[in-house]
Design a protein around this nucleic acid. Structure first.
Lengths: 161, 161
DNA sequence: GTTGAAACTTATTAAAC
DNA sequence: GTTTAATAAGTTTCAAC
């Protein structure tokens, strides 16, 4: 694990808030001159603390107006069932996140759809069509606080057919 | 809603994958010359499709090795209870996301902690100390597929005291 | 750690097609 | 939409302190 001093943390906070901030701006913000600031940023990138940069895209602007969390319980927790489930998941662009969790369910999925019909279709045709899926429960997200606003969206999906 | 053609979508995909890609690189990738590409990117930014840019930070590198999803049920769903809960949530830096959802629970929280002891402490001292919280259930995230890798982490939290 | 300077790359704008 | 050219700005590297 790399050691981070308070200045490194300030740099991370700055680049987390604005990933396109120039080295000069970051340097001024954290109270360094550009040269050592640039060195620190490069060190943070090369050590993997900063994994990369991304545009934050607004799913609503792509016509995806509904976001849900779906909990999934598999019929059995065998490696075969898991890999069958995951490969089925892989092909669905509306799933932006898939978490394997402990507890009474096995997976949590984050799913973006454009309307209720698309949601119905996703649940019945995509999810419940997977043989090893025993039970699903859909929670519609009504509001988001403390969001990072960072949803990776499949931009190819909502376009002209 | 802004109209997006296939080239716009390619631009979004490119900047989602690498938010620091230069206009020249994006232009070449999508098959445009730099001038119109720059205009499109600016249009996407100004229309809110691109909300901003962010560094992707690896929470593990900050010493946060455990991520959990906590479902929370409130004793009653009154506006008072909700605002009491949300203001208590606001102060906790380990909570990186808070979703209001439909279904058998009221909120889903995403929480990063450095170890099990910090998790225990968070649940007992932070969460269950909120008066209106009736029930919580913690799911430890064992694996993440299809992650966007974009967790906004409070970089000030794990540093020297 | 700091400053300053040079070489290189990029962004932006304007003009012409 | 394209190309070209000019200006402005940022990055990187080097030296010296």
């Amino acid at each position: 694990m790399i050691e981070l001093d308070p200045i490194d943390r300030k740099i991370l906070a700055a680049l987390q808030a604005d990933g396109r901030m120039s080295n000069l701006e970051v340097a001024e913000l954290v109270g360094l001159s550009p040269t050592p600031c640039s060195r620190r940023i490069k060190r943070l990138e090369e050590s993997g603390v900063i994994q990369g940069y991304a545009a934050r895209i607004n799913p609503l602007a792509l016509g995806l107006s509904i976001c849900v969390v779906v909990s999934v319980r598999l019929a059995k927790q065998t490696p075969d069932a898991a890999s069958q489930f995951l490969s089925a998941i892989e092909d669905r662009p509306e799933i932006t996140e898939c978490l394997l969790v402990t507890g009474s369910v096995d997976y949590l999925l984050r799913v973006w759809v454009k309307d209720i019909e698309a949601l119905r279709q996703f649940i019945s045709e995509a999810l419940q069509a997977i043989p090893c899926v025993a039970e699903t429960s859909t929670m519609v997200i009504l509001d988001t606080t403390k969001s990072n606003g960072l949803s990776t969206v499949d931009t190819a999906r909502t376009g002209p057919r």
